[in-house]
Design a protein around this nucleic acid. Structure first.
Lengths: 210, 210
DNA sequence: TGAATAATACCTCAATCCGGGGGATTACGT
DNA sequence: ACGTAATCCCCCGGATTGAGGTATTATTCA
């Protein structure tokens, strides 16, 4: 009955109860098996080569090293392991930090039986399980502000600035004189209230102008 | 029997067959109704104030204005309308362009009955429906490269550069001398093979160094 | 323990960039 | 007809940057 190819799942979660209930749920599936569970990242990382997990369910709030730092270290050493963050928070900063750290999914602790197993299946299929709110948060992060104070040309030039181009390169690329490029950039700076290229890029990213 | 609060869905799709089949599927639901369908963006935009859609299913490849340009214009005028891109392509550039333009979901034309309705439900819940591959693509886009050639300090400084900080500001923020900041930046430039702040930022974003 | 790497700091010099003005023409759309 | 956008030019001074060095401490790791 024990399938030889069950996906190896590791739990990192300091709440004993959640650890137990998640273990039960995961083990109830024919496709997954919990190889181990830890209450902190340090131990998990220490034994990762022995446990050889393919998927890690990682809590964010942990004693000692937090789940985001832990994910970073794990993905650093073992990039093939898929990490799913499990948390109570859907705070946007934490989400993005976790994703940057290398998480491939983001579910909440309130996840029920089905949601948890669906998330694991999604990961197996090469997907990225997320709650509705997280998905929207992530997608919204891409949206460019349609109410930019900049004109089309200015936006175009800001784009080139963000690509690291110099005044000269911009003027050549757009077939305009260097002075014109300068004028546009002066206007961009004044509209964005900045006074350097990098500041302009920072503001552009912040306000999703490009 | 006709519920008064069905969500108003608009179709923009040049393939007559798909338009018909999607219309049938959407109308089969108690929660949605197709208010109109067009074979091009121009017409859709022209009549949008009359059709008053809450959700638009938008093809990307269209005669005349493409679906990405169309989405941009629609979100510009009516930011409250949710646009779901419907396409055969899962090409990464197109996906990101569509998301930047303001799309809130991204499904493929091969979407069946269930997938289509699930996507609409997801949108209604404030989510962002995506296929597994798209979701992973989007998530992967956040991941920071764990094999950065930069040291911790250099990464820290690159981060500050990307925030638009000057040498002086960086040195003050990190409690080091201006000269040291300069040295670090020189090393960053040499490792990234660039020679300006904006180029460094561009490369950093490209290679997900920060 | 020794070597390598990282982080710190200083020097010089030329090129670029920025800010702050200014003025001017053409074109397009309302 | 007026405003906005896009184009181009000028001056200038000061700040910043980039490129070339050298050098001293920590720390880390083999």
């Amino acid at each position: 009955m024990a399938l030889p190819f069950k996906k190896r799942v590791l739990l990192v979660e300091d709440d004993q109860e959640i650890r137990n209930s998640f273990t039960l749920i995961v083990n109830s599936s024919q496709k997954f098996t919990v190889v181990n569970s830890y209450s902190n990242c340090e131990e998990a990382i220490e034994n990762i080569n022995r446990d050889k997990p393919e998927i890690i369910l990682m809590d964010i709030e942990l004693p000692g090293m937090n789940g985001i730092q832990g994910t970073k270290q794990i993905k650093d050493k073992s990039p093939h392991i898929d990490v799913i963050m499990v948390t109570v928070y859907e705070d946007s900063e934490l989400v993005f930090e976790a994703l940057k750290a290398g998480a491939s999914g983001y579910i909440t602790k309130s996840a029920n039986y089905m949601e948890l197993l669906t998330a694991l299946e999604e990961i197996m299929k090469g997907g990225a399980p997320m709650s509705s709110r997280i998905a929207r948060m992530v997608i919204d992060n891409f949206h460019v502000n349609p109410n930019s104070p900049l004109t089309k040309r200015e936006t175009e030039i800001l784009q080139l600035i963000s690509e690291g181009k110099t005044y000269t390169q911009i003027s050549e690329e757009l077939f305009i004189s260097k002075e014109t490029a300068k004028t546009h950039i002066k206007n961009i700076y004044s509209k964005l209230q900045v006074n350097s290229k990098s500041e302009a890029i920072a503001k552009a990213n912040l306000e999703k102008l490009i």
